[in-house]
């Protein structure tokens, strides 16, 4: 039989000794691995106990303490916090015209910042995800991320210098008869838009990346020009990503108090009121009550957003 059948080409007789694969050795680490791989609950407990402990103590407890503090009061004579339950702080915050004005201003600033960021981020993210070459794409991602490496304070002060009386903006617009906008709410909105722009670009970019090119081609193929394609295909598919981006810019703007201090002139936002009450006024309970405002607003926003399904995409 073997005399007739030609040997398959290039197949030498197998070397049995060399082909032997040694069995794995038994070590304590291996025994532990075996134990863990057959006990999923132990595995889960070991994996999660440390982070859950951290989350519980550092996050939840601190937050709950803050909320509880809002229902306490300060002895105006001694400055000591007295742990009597009262709704006074909440009522002050809800009815005081100062708080109402500042709340409206803060929400207005946060909404405008969010709007500006989305309008700026959409074309940038679209270019990054769908137009740029892979090389250009990497360069742009780095360009978007780089400002995040610089200190927040430095960036805010950079804008202060740009907007100052003898700053770059003044120098740029003087030939056209303009002048710098100076410090105030517009300057705050510009600076905050700049600070949070990367946080809006990145989720929208990631969302667009996940829209297959073939869907855009299919839309064009079926007769859809640019605008119908954007309106019926791209926008509905990236809406969750856009909303994810707005959560960042909106909530970060709501809580900000440094930028408005640096470029906001005399304007105050909720963060400033918190800061003043903790520091100069030594009224921690009132500060806690003010801090509840942005928390409630953000929860309201998240509740609205949840109904769009955007949170599934965070």
């Amino acid at each position: 039989m073997t005399t007739h059948a030609p040997a398959p080409p290039g197949a030498p007789a197998p070397d049995r000794a060399r082909d032997t694969v040694p069995r794995p050795r038994r070590t304590p680490a291996r025994a532990a691995s075996v134990f863990l791989s057959t006990h999923p609950r132990t595995r889960l407990a070991l994996l999660l106990s440390a982070p859950l402990f951290w989350l519980g103590v550092v996050y939840i407890v601190a937050l709950v303490l803050l909320l509880v503090t809002a229902f306490w009061t300060v002895d105006s004579f001694t400055g000591e916090i007295s742990q009597e339950w009262t709704l006074d702080n909440i009522i002050t915050v809800l009815t005081g015209s100062l708080y109402q004005t500042v709340t409206l201003r803060t929400v207005g600033v946060a909404l405008l910042v969010t709007l500006i960021d989305v309008v700026l981020a959409l074309p940038i993210a679209f270019f990054m995800a769908k137009v740029a070459t892979p090389r250009m794409q990497r360069i742009l991602v780095i360009a978007v991320l780089t400002p995040l490496w610089a200190s927040y304070l430095v960036k805010a002060y950079a804008w202060r210098s740009v907007l100052s009386q003898d700053g770059i903006l003044e120098w740029l617009v003087t030939p056209f008869g303009g002048q710098t906008i100076g410090y105030g709410l517009p300057a705050t909105i510009i600076t905050l838009s700049y600070l949070w722009l990367p946080y809006v670009i990145l989720p929208i970019y990631a969302g667009l990346e996940r829209v297959p090119d073939s869907l855009l081609e299919a839309s064009a193929d079926l007769g859809g020009r640019t605008w119908p394609t954007v309106r019926f295909v791209v926008f509905p598919l990236v809406l969750p990503a856009i909303i994810a981006g707005t959560i960042f810019s909106f909530s970060l703007s709501l809580g900000d108090y440094i930028t408005v201090n640096i470029v906001g002139g005399a304007s105050q936002m909720l963060g400033n009121l918190v800061y003043t009450n903790v520091g100069a006024a030594n009224n921690l309970p009132l500060a806690a009550a003010i801090a509840l405002i942005p928390i409630v607003i953000i929860f309201g926003y998240l509740f609205l957003v949840r109904r769009t399904g955007a949170l599934d995409n965070l």
């Binding site: 299919a218 193929d221 079926l222 019926f232 598919l237």
Partner: peptide
């Protein structure tokens, strides 16, 4: 001509149905 100006249509390999 652009794809939307041609009287041809495509059945894509991955179907490219709009998921939403």
């Amino acid at each position: 001509r652009a794809p939307f100006d041609r009287d041809v249509n495509t059945v894509f390999q991955d179907y490219a149905l709009f998921p939403h």
